[in-house]
Structures are given as C-alpha cells and as structure tokens.
C-alpha cells in the first residue's frame, strides 16, 4: 500500500557547481571572515587589554595576569588626587553639557527654522570646532586667559569646553528639527500658546531624542577632553584625563587601567542605549 512514496514537490535544481569551485568560495569566505576578525582584534585590542590588566594582581604589567584582584580599583578610589580629578571632570562635564545644550538648542532652532543673512556662515562657524585642531585652540586659550587674567578656574574650563561641545549639540538637535513641522507652532499659537509655551509643550517633546543625544555627547566630549584642558587647567583644576595623562607618562601600574575600565563600561552602556533612544523619535 505504501510502496510508492509521493513524488517530492518539484524543486529548482541548484546550478551544478564544480566541487573545487565551491571549495574555493568557501575558503575565500573563511579567509575574508578571518581578515575582518583580525581587523576587529586590532581595533579593540587596547580596550580589551586595559580591562584585563585592571584585574591583575601584580604591580608590573604581566599578561595574561597570573592572579586576579580588585586592588587597583581600591587603589584608584583611595587616591584622593584621582578622586578629586574625577569630581572635577564630572562637574565640568555636567556644567558644560547644561550650557552647551541651552546654547545649542537655541542656535539650532534659529539656524534650521529661519532664513536670514549669514545663516550659512554662522552655521559653518558653529560647526568649525569639529575639525579645528585642539592643540591650536589650546595655545590660543592659554594666551587669551593669561591676558584677561582668567587662568585655571572652573569657569575658564567650562567656557572653553562649551566651544568644543556646542557643535555636537547643534548637529543632533538640527537633525531632529528637520523632521519638525512649523505648522505645529502656528497651531499652538492659534490656540493661544505663548511662544515659550509652544516651544516647551510642542517642540521640545518632539525633538527630545536629539536634545538628549546632544547633551550626552557634550558631556562625554567635555569629560574626555585632554588637549585644550592640558593648556588651561591650573594645578587646582586637574581633570581626570589630565591626571591619567600625567600618571602614565611616568608610571605603569594598573591604577589607570582600573578607572579606564570603569569608563569603558560606562561608554559601552551609553553606546548601547544612546542610538536606540536617538532613533526612537
């Protein structure tokens, strides 16, 4: 009864490939993936190494570590110089992010939503710190602050960092603003909203993702900034990157690896969550 099995549904015959050719393709695929893996290894090597070394027991660089410990994390947080530098960086970064976001949001609205003379010129000026050599700005700032007697204070750092971070805010906020329809503002005005209310209740919620991304970028750039800060930070306003820079010029124990690893993990988390947040709107 079940002698004859049903004929299999007709399937298009795959093109007959010569076995050596298929082998060649498979091999080249493997080689390609190997190449990509090696490039990734090169790109990520320093980061991975820093994280591994931070758990090392020994004060010398031994790789791979012979024994694991958290002593370098303890060492970092018990060094009052490092902790003060971390605090300075956090304060400067947060203040910079706040001011940059405010300036950047206002400027973006002006640049994107209005047409006026010198608009393109202003736009280029505001974005120019992105490609401007930090070392040139550093020497310019130190010369300038010496002239106006403003060297080495908290606000001298913040003012310089705002210049460096405003472009990032303008870029992300502008990107959000391109998708915003001005009709909504008119509608709000017709319904009796003041311009500020219209901004706060209508525009801001719609460009929120861009604003958040811009503020986070501003914080990261300020927190990581080394070159300009190296010129203008006096001995009282040492930030974390400067402290790390000075430390590794002369010492090689893994204290720096410990704080670096913490920063890497924080950045990784931001990297995972930021784009999703930014794309969401």
């Amino acid at each position: 009864m079940n002698a004859v099995s049903k004929p299999a549904p007709a399937r298009p015959e795959p093109r007959p490939a010569l076995p050596w050719r298929r082998l060649g393709e498979g091999l080249s695929q493997v080689l390609q993936n190997l190449l990509i893996a090696l490039i990734y290894a090169f790109l990520l090597a320093p980061i991975i190494v820093v994280v591994i070394v931070s758990f090392s027991e020994s004060a010398y660089l031994v790789f791979p570590p012979k024994a694991l410990s958290l002593r370098w994390y303890v060492a970092f947080f018990s060094d009052s110089d490092f902790v003060r530098a971390l605090k300075n960086s956090l304060m400067v970064g947060a203040t910079t992010a706040l001011i940059s976001s405010t300036l950047g949001i206002l400027a973006s609205i002006g640049l994107v939503k209005y047409k006026f003379r010198f608009r393109d010129l202003l736009n280029s000026l505001f974005l120019s710190p992105l490609t401007f050599p930090a070392i040139v700005l550093g020497i310019a700032m130190v010369v300038f602050y010496a002239k106006v007697k403003l060297s080495g204070t908290f606000w001298s750092l913040v003012c310089a960092h705002v210049v460096l971070t405003v472009p990032y805010v303008i870029r992300t906020v502008s990107a959000s603003l391109y998708g915003f329809d001005n009709v909504l503002l008119e509608a709000a005005a017709n319904l009796g909203a003041s311009p500020f209310t219209a901004f706060r209740r209508v525009m801001l919620p719609l460009i929120k993702a861009g604003v958040i991304a811009g503020a986070i970028f501003a914080f990261i750039i300020s927190f990581d900034e080394l070159v300009v800060t190296l010129f203008i930070a006096g001995p009282r306003m040492t930030t974390l990157p400067i402290k790390i820079f000075n430390y590794i010029e002369y010492t090689s124990d893994p204290t720096v690896a410990a704080i670096s690893s913490i920063l890497i993990v924080i950045m990784l988390l931001i990297g995972v969550f930021l784009p999703r947040n930014f794309v969401a709107a």
Binding site: A45, P46, I47, D224, P241, I244, S260
Partner: peptide, 11 residues
C-alpha cells in the same frame, strides 16, 4: 566613545 588617552594607554 573611549578616550584617546585610555586607548593609547592600552597600546
């Protein structure tokens, strides 16, 4: 997103 100082330290 990782600072150049940290990556240079890795190298």
């Amino acid at each position: 997103l990782t600072s150049a100082v940290v990556r240079t330290y890795g190298w």
